[in-house]
């Protein structure tokens, strides 16, 4: 039973694509390992050649260096291969991402299409018509309501309006006028001057 459940639950999330990428990466690792191995042997041979020269074994030393040279060339070849593998890998991985993007676009498109399907053009016209009717109805109500006001009410409204209109101007202070009369052609406009005047007034009152 457990096995049955296990298999149904554990659907592998590793795709064929992943396996291909892994295969390439394994190849890349092998080239890297090869490089490392060659580097180590080259170093050993260099040391050996050095020793052979010290021991006076010229021919053997030369042979060693020739071998090392050959390995150097192999190393360069491996480098080129590594580069190729790397670029191939990048392409592969990028294609995977592109695929995902396309998949995403597809899903988005499908979603948009379905949404459009639910909103049919006639429905929208109907909704707009209905709301227009609603507005007109509201307007009718408004006109009915304003029509119910009598001329008597209008008079009251006018009166109140006149009162309010008058109230919005401040009362003209009488004392100020006298003051201005004393010092004839002075024109007080600035606020500063107004406060000065008020101070003086206070002094006078004392």
């Amino acid at each position: 039973m457990g096995n049955l459940f296990g298999t149904s639950k554990n659907v592998s999330r590793v795709t064929e694509h992943d396996r291909a990428v892994l295969q390439l990466k394994v190849q890349r690792d092998k080239v890297r390992q090869y490089q490392r191995r060659i580097e180590v042997t080259m170093e050993k041979e260099r040391q050996l050649a050095k020793r052979l020269i010290q021991e006076g074994k010229k021919d053997k030393a030369k042979l060693m260096l020739r071998k090392k040279r050959f390995e150097e060339q192999q190393l360069t070849k491996a480098e080129v291969q590594l580069e190729q593998l790397d670029s191939l890998l990048m392409n592969l991985e990028f294609t995977q991402i592109e695929q995902q993007v396309i998949q995403g676009l597809k899903i988005g498109n499908e979603c948009l299409r379905k949404l459009h399907e639910t909103f049919k053009l006639e429905d929208i016209e109907k909704i707009l018509d209905e709301s227009r009717e609603g507005i007109e109805y509201q307007r009718d109500i408004d006109s009915l309501l304003s029509g119910s006001i009598t001329t008597e009410d209008d008079d009251v409204v006018e009166e109140e309006f006149a009162q309010m209109f008058a109230d919005q101007f401040p009362e003209v202070p009488k004392e100020d006028l006298e003051e201005i009369g004393d010092t004839a052609p002075r024109k007080d406009t600035g606020k500063q001057k107004a406060t000065e005047r008020r101070e003086r007034q206070a002094q006078l009152a004392d």
Binding site: V21, L22, K25, V26, D29
Partner: peptide, 8 residues
């Protein structure tokens, strides 16, 4: 979402 080798 990518594959790494153990060696890597």
């Amino acid at each position: 979402n990518t594959v790494c080798t153990l060696y890597d």
